[in-house]
């Protein structure tokens, strides 16, 4: 994949500047990082990630990877959605201390298999669990900004309504774009006026989303599944069960 190589291998550590910090939910903050010029020019693909490195005054270092959530249209900066993890040394530092103007060491963009490009015009199914929306958000934003005609459907599972990251933006995108459908599901109780689904994503829900996207007895050309390990494992199995090819199901997993 020569095309992806041109935008990866950002092996050199760079220093970015935090230009915005926003609460997205009780446990997730959004950080915008302005990139140095040479990184900005290199661009990235929707779905790629950056490695972040923190260094303590005594030299101790910690690194973590975070997916880019912003669209590649604006390569000068990247947005990251950082979920506060219990005992997470990097996420807790970001939540407690990082402010606009701070410098952060990073390198990237990295990855290339879990990426979506506007040249892909065939139907695509996105399935996200919790903060697994992060790399898919970049893809959906790129889908919208590139006026893609690829039929797309996002099925997004969260615990409670306030945990649905980017809820307003996703609903606006789906309303404005006839090529994007949105199915939200909550697994830990729903508000009175809830119009989405109210259970964990199961085989029936996957079947329903595929029918809605490509009609009965058809399959999407590509699926992107991102979330916790067991979430991705079970949905990956469903997608193989319905007949999707192994290489057409792209996954990204986090958590033990």
């Amino acid at each position: 994949m020569a095309t992806s190589r041109s935008r990866d291998g950002g092996a050199e550590w760079q220093i970015a500047t935090v230009s915005s910090v926003d609460d997205e939910s009780t446990r997730v903050k959004l950080f915008t990082l302005d990139l140095p010029d040479e990184r900005a020019k290199a661009g990235f693909f929707a779905g790629q990630y950056y490695d972040l490195r923190l260094t303590a005054p005594d030299g101790y270092q910690a690194q973590r990877s975070y997916s880019i959530t912003s669209s590649p249209d604006d390569p000068g900066s990247i947005e990251l959605a950082i979920e506060l993890i219990t005992d997470g040394e990097v996420s807790s530092y970001f939540h407690e201390f990082v402010e606009v103007g701070d410098k952060i060491e990073l390198r990237g963009p990295i990855g290339g298999h879990f990426t979506w490009l506007p040249m892909i015009t065939k139907p695509v199914l996105f399935i996200a669990g919790g903060s697994g929306i992060a790399p898919i958000m970049s893809m959906l934003r790129h889908h919208a900004s590139s006026n893609s005609t690829a039929p797309a459907l996002l099925m997004f599972s969260a615990r409670n309504e306030p945990d649905i990251l980017y809820k307003d933006e996703l609903e606006r995108m789906a309303d404005a774009d006839q090529n994007l459908a949105l199915i939200l599901t909550l697994t830990r109780g729903v508000p009175d006026d809830w119009r989405g689904e109210s259970r964990r994503i199961d085989k029936a829900m996957v079947d329903q989303s595929i029918s809605q996207l490509v009609g009965e007895n058809n399959l999407p050309d590509r699926a992107y599944v991102c979330g916790g390990s067991s979430f991705v494992e079970s949905i990956g199995n469903y997608l193989l069960d319905v007949g999707m090819g192994h290489n057409d199901v792209r996954t990204e997993r986090f958590g033990p």
Partner: peptide, 20 residues
């Protein structure tokens, strides 16, 4: 090794679904 942290669990990382 440098840049690593200890993990008690056994995370799963695969680029695709688990093949049969």
């Amino acid at each position: 090794p440098p840049g690593q942290y200890l993990e008690d669990g056994f995370p799963v990382l695969s680029a695709g679904p688990t093949p049969r």
